[in-house]
């Protein structure tokens, strides 16, 4: 087990290095003078020189690469072209709302979708199953911004239960923090609940046809125990896979949701940086998202072995 985890962790390192090199190359390989690209159309010669110096563009490319890695290891992703604030600090300031949104969405997904899937799988074709399936079609097909605005209209404007938008850090009071997260989390969860519920359902239905489920019945185990103890864990691998993919794809969902609910998170930072062509910030964000993606895959792979002792690569 330990050697497997170590092996998987070690094998992520080369992937991270490759990702870092690609991101480094993105800017360097753009045609023309990177400094001119970075500075934009109406830059002064002075600004250009400054960028050049800060990026060591006059040095050979290998030296630049080494510097890039050295800075990376030191946690230095450069500075924003617009504000001059270090990228790492910018990310640090904006990561809170996004983490809260993502964690909330994942929790809601797991807490709602897995029970839904189990309930549906108990009697395929039954009333509950058809309700779950109908809900998941709805969840799939309605875009986040529609769900978002409908939720705002209902719960914020009509009923007045929750604020329309905005963000308060948890330090300012937990309730005001949670209050502002409920609607965005619900809006973003829809798709993931639909996805995970369906996968849970089909995965459990498949497992229920296995011989060992029959053995469990022959033992005299009650249906509940068969579902929760024998079926669910055997059905876990596809469910974990889908949740992993879901978390990875949250990144796109976060951009839309943060815009709809005006949350000052990383999703908004992406939009701002792209619109302003703030390359160092974009670079930093791509790097962060890529590393998150690699990390999630790593966790999913390790979870496989927790759920299924047969898996050893």
């Amino acid at each position: 087990m330990l050697s497997y985890v170590l092996k998987r962790v070690l094998s992520s390192v080369p992937v991270m290095i490759v990702v870092a090199v690609v991101i480094f190359a993105l800017l360097r390989l753009t045609p023309g003078d990177p400094a001119a690209v970075l500075a934009g159309n109406d830059a002064t010669a002075e600004q250009l020189a400054k960028i050049r110096e800060s990026l060591e563009l006059d040095e050979p490319i290998l030296v630049q690469l080494l510097t890039w890695f050295r800075n990376l290891l030191a946690g230095d992703l450069g500075e924003s072209l617009l504000s001059g604030i270090p990228v790492v600090r910018m990310i640090g300031e904006r990561v809170g709302p996004t983490l809260a949104l993502a964690a909330g969405t994942i929790s809601v997904t797991i807490l709602v979708a897995i029970p839904m899937g189990i309930v549906a799988a108990r009697r395929p074709g039954g009333v509950l199953d058809r309700m779950v399936m109908a809900l998941s079609v709805l969840g799939f097909s309605v875009p986040i911004f529609v769900t978002g605005y409908v939720l705002i209209y209902l719960f914020a404007l009509k009923l007045g239960w929750l604020p329309v938008q905005g963000y308060r850090p948890p330090g300012d009071g937990l309730w005001s923090f949670a209050q502002r997260l409920i609607l965005p989390v619900l809006a973003l969860s829809g798709v993931y609940v639909a996805l995970v519920a369906r996968i849970t359902r089909s995965s459990i239905i498949e497992v229920l046809g296995e011989d060992y489920i029959r053995t469990a019945r022959a033992k005299g185990a009650p249906e509940r125990r068969i579902l929760l103890r024998h079926a669910l864990r055997n059905a876990a691998v596809p469910i974990v896979t889908i949740i992993g993919i879901g978390i990875a794809s949250l990144i796109t969902g976060v951009v839309v949701t943060e815009s709809v609910f005006n949350l000052p998170g990383l999703g908004r930072l992406v939009v701002e940086a792209v619109l302003a062509r703030d390359y160092p910030v974009i670079q930093g964000l791509i790097l962060l998202f890529s590393f998150t993606y690699i990390l999630i895959n790593l966790v999913v792979d390790i979870l496989y072995t927790v759920f299924d002792p047969r898996i050893r690569y």
């Binding site: 296995e210 011989d211 060992y212 029959r214 053995t215 469990a216 019945r217 022959a218 033992k219 005299g220 185990a221 009650p222 024998h230 864990r233 055997n234 759920f307 299924d308 002792p309 047969r310």
Partner: peptide, 22 residues
């Protein structure tokens, strides 16, 4: 359900799949 295993039991054909793998 109560009678199974206490009064009557069953052994199946495929030992490879009759046990919960996890």
């Amino acid at each position: 359900r109560h009678l199974r295993s206490t009064r009557m039991s069953m052994v199946f054909q495929e030992p490879m799949t009759a046990l919960n793998p996890v």
